[in-house]
C-alpha cells in the first residue's frame, strides 16, 4: 500500500467522523496556550501547538476524584462506577503518550490501581509530529520526535499535509473510514528536528550520576529560588502522587474518600502523625523530585520518569529549569 496523506483543511472532517463513534480529546487553544479538551466543534482542534497546560494524565488520574463512598451508620461502602467510554486522543505528541506509558507502569505494576486502569481501556491514540520550542528536551531523555511507540495512527506534518500511518489494527480501521479525505503521499522522510533545550549527556547511566550527588551544591542553589508552589509536579505527565482525604456531608452519615493531586515540593507532603516531616528542608524536596525522575524510578525498560515535555520549566514562575539542574550534575 502506498502511503497516504491528509490535507490540513480536511482534519475537521476526519475529526467529525471520529466523533460519531468516539469521545474525541484533542488540543484546543486557551488564551495564549492550549489545553486537551473533549471536542465539540471539530474546527477547534489545533495540530500546531507547543504543549498544553496539563498533560493527558488529567483524564486518567483527575485532579480530584472520589475513590469510595460510604455510609457511617450502615457501615457500607461502594466504589464509584467508572466509565471507560471509547475515546480517541487526537493530535498527541509522542512524549505525551510516553508519559501515559510511564503512568501505566506506575499504576499497573505491584498493587494495581483499578480506577486508573479502567480508564485506560478503550483508548486510541493518534499522534502528530511537533516542532520543539525553547523548553522541550524529549530527545535527551530517549524520546526522539519520530518515536511512534504506543500510537495507533501517527501523523507526520509536511507542506500543509499530514502523512497518515496506521500502526495497529484499530488504527487501520479508522484510516479505512477516512479514505474519502485521503490522497497519495509524496513525502516519505522524517522532519529534521533540532532541540534547543537538551541534557549534556544521554540518559544511559544517568541513574549513576545521582550516587555521588546527594550533597551537590545545586540542590541548595535551586531551593533558594523555589517557593514550593508545586506547579512542577502538578503539570508533570509522570507525577502521580496523591493525597487522600475523607469528608462526611454535614448532618448525614454519607461520606466520601477522595484523592487529590499532591506535590512532593510541599512541606506537608511528608508530614506524618505527630507532625514529623521527613523532608523539612526545601533543598531535600528539590533533590527528591529530581531523584524521583532520574534515579529512583525507571520503567521496565530502564527509562527515566521524565519525558522531556518541558512543562515544569515553561510554567515555573521562578524560572527553575530541570535541564539546568541536571546539567549542573552531569
Amino acid at each position: 500500500m502506498s502511503s497516504k496523506a491528509i490535507a490540513r483543511e480536511k482534519i475537521p472532517d476526519a475529526v467529525s467522523l471520529l466523533k460519531a463513534k468516539y469521545r474525541v480529546i484533542a488540543p484546543v487553544p486557551k488564551g495564549k496556550t492550549f489545553v486537551f479538551k473533549k471536542i465539540g466543534n471539530p474546527q477547534e482542534v489545533v495540530l500546531d501547538y507547543n504543549t498544553t497546560i496539563l498533560p493527558l494524565k488529567k483524564f486518567f488520574l483527575p485532579p480530584d476524584e472520589v475513590i469510595v463512598k460510604y455510609n457511617l451508620k450502615k457501615r457500607e461502602y461502594q466504589e464509584p462506577e467508572i466509565e471507560s467510554e471509547p475515546t480517541v486522543f487526537f493530535g498527541i505528541h509522542n512524549y505525551e503518550l510516553q508519559g501515559i506509558l510511564r503512568l501505566d507502569y506506575a499504576f499497573g505494576t505491584g498493587v494495581k490501581d483499578a480506577t486508573y486502569l479502567k480508564k485506560r481501556e478503550n483508548n486510541i491514540f493518534i499522534g502528530v509530529t511537533y516542532t520543539p520550542d525553547d523548553y522541550h528536551f524529549a530527545e535527551s531523555v530517549g524520546i526522539p520526535t519520530d518515536l511512534k511507540e504506543g500510537f495507533d495512527i501517527f501523523l507526520t506534518k509536511y507542506n500543509g499535509h499530514y502523512r497518515v500511518e496506521a500502526l495497529t489494527d484499530k488504527g487501520k480501521n479508522i484510516v479505512s473510514q477516512w479514505s474519502e479525505f485521503l490522497e497519495d503521499c509524496s513525502y516519505d522522510g522524517d522532519p529534521v528536528v533540532h532541540f534547543k533545550n537538551k541534557l549534556k549527556q544521554s540518559v544511559a547511566g544517568i541513574r549513576e550520576i545521582f550516587h555521588g550527588a546527594y550533597n551537590h551544591p545545586v540542590w541548595k542553589e535551586t531551593s533558594k529560588k523555589c517557593y514550593s508552589c508545586g506547579t512542577c509536579n502538578l503539570v508533570c505527565p509522570t507525577c502521580y502522587c496523591f493525597d487522600v482525604s475523607d469528608e462526611v456531608v454535614l448532618g448525614t452519615d454519607q461520606g466520601a474518600r477522595s484523592r487529590r493531586w499532591d506535590s512532593c515540593q510541599i512541606l506537608g507532603f511528608t508530614e506524618v502523625a505527630g507532625g514529623e516531616a521527613f523532608r523539612e528542608k526545601r533543598y531535600d524536596r528539590v533533590r527528591h523530585r529530581m531523584s524521583r525522575k532520574f534515579a529512583y524510578i525507571m520503567d521496565d525498560r530502564d527509562r527515566p520518569f521524565c519525558v522531556g515535555c518541558g512543562r515544569c520549566i515553561r510554567q515555573c514562575t521562578a524560572d527553575i529549569s530541570i535541564t539546568d539542574v541536571m546539567n549542573a550534575l552531569l
Binding site: 497546560i53 496539563l54 485532579p63 480530584d64 517557593y227 514550593s228 508552589c229 508545586g230 506547579t231 502538578l234 503539570v235 487529590r260 493531586w261 499532591d262 506535590s263 510541599i266 512541606l267 506537608g268
Partner: peptide, 10 residues
C-alpha cells in the same frame, strides 16, 4: 497548606 497554584493548575 499547599498554595493557590495547585487549585489553579487543577
Amino acid at each position: 497548606e499547599y498554595s493557590v497554584c495547585a487549585e489553579c493548575k487543577a
